[in-house]
């Protein structure tokens, strides 16, 4: 029974991706979203490119996971998810909105498969499984989001460290000439 949903998902893949992509893009200001959609040069539009490519790859992996029954396969998906979330983590989004785009996939699948979902109980059952995979994806997304934010704070700390490293070296030097020199000498 699962096979039929798989086929359906493969068949409707372009539609699903289009809807999903639009849903994500619509989280940006109106005048920006069209730029993100229309500008196809990946260097002029890194954000749009990351989303376009990321969603395609993520969907393929999910589909593979679904077909083989392996489930979400968060580790394999992580790099693609990372490409999108790394961008959103530094944009004007709350944590929930930064990763919430994952759930939009559910909506995208439903609107693309609308009629089939209504008609077939099997498809509905299959969808439940697919949905739980998307939930798994969302959890992975949240982990990545947290890593990105932690990275930002780590970078701030690192910069300070880099800037003060030579100063600390210097401080040691000063210590040597000061009264602590004796202590150091004794220690050696």
């Amino acid at each position: 029974m699962n096979v039929s949903l798989k086929d359906l998902l493969s068949e409707k893949k372009p539609d699903i991706l289009n809807i999903w992509f639009d849903e994500i893009i619509d989280t940006y200001p109106a005048d920006t979203s069209l730029f993100l959609k229309k500008q196809k040069n990946r260097f002029h539009n890194p954000v749009g490119h990351a989303i376009l490519h990321g969603t395609g790859e993520i969907f393929d992996k999910l589909l593979e996971g679904y077909a083989s029954g392996r489930g979400t396969g968060a580790e394999e998906i992580a790099p693609f998810l990372d490409n999108i979330i790394r961008v959103r983590a530094v944009q004007d989004f709350t944590a929930s909105r930064a990763v919430g785009f994952v759930f939009a996939l559910k909506k995208a699948v439903r609107s693309a498969l609308e009629s089939s979902v209504r008609e077939s109980g099997d498809i509905r059952a299959g969808l439940e499984k697919f949905d739980s995979m998307v939930d798994g994806l969302a959890l992975a997304a949240f982990d990545i989001y947290m890593q990105c934010r932690e990275k930002i704070y780590a970078l701030r700390a690192e910069e300070i460290e880099k800037r003060t490293f030579r100063l600390l070296q210097q401080a040691n030097l000063i210590c040597e000439v000061d009264e602590e020199k004796k202590d150091l000498d004794r220690g050696e």
């Binding site: 229309k38 500008q39 196809k40 040069n41 260097f43």
Partner: peptide, 14 residues
């Protein structure tokens, strides 16, 4: 000037 564009001819910008 454009390069490495993707997708169909849509790629010609405004």
């Amino acid at each position: 000037k454009t390069e490495l564009r993707e997708g169909p001819q849509l790629s010609y910008g405004s």
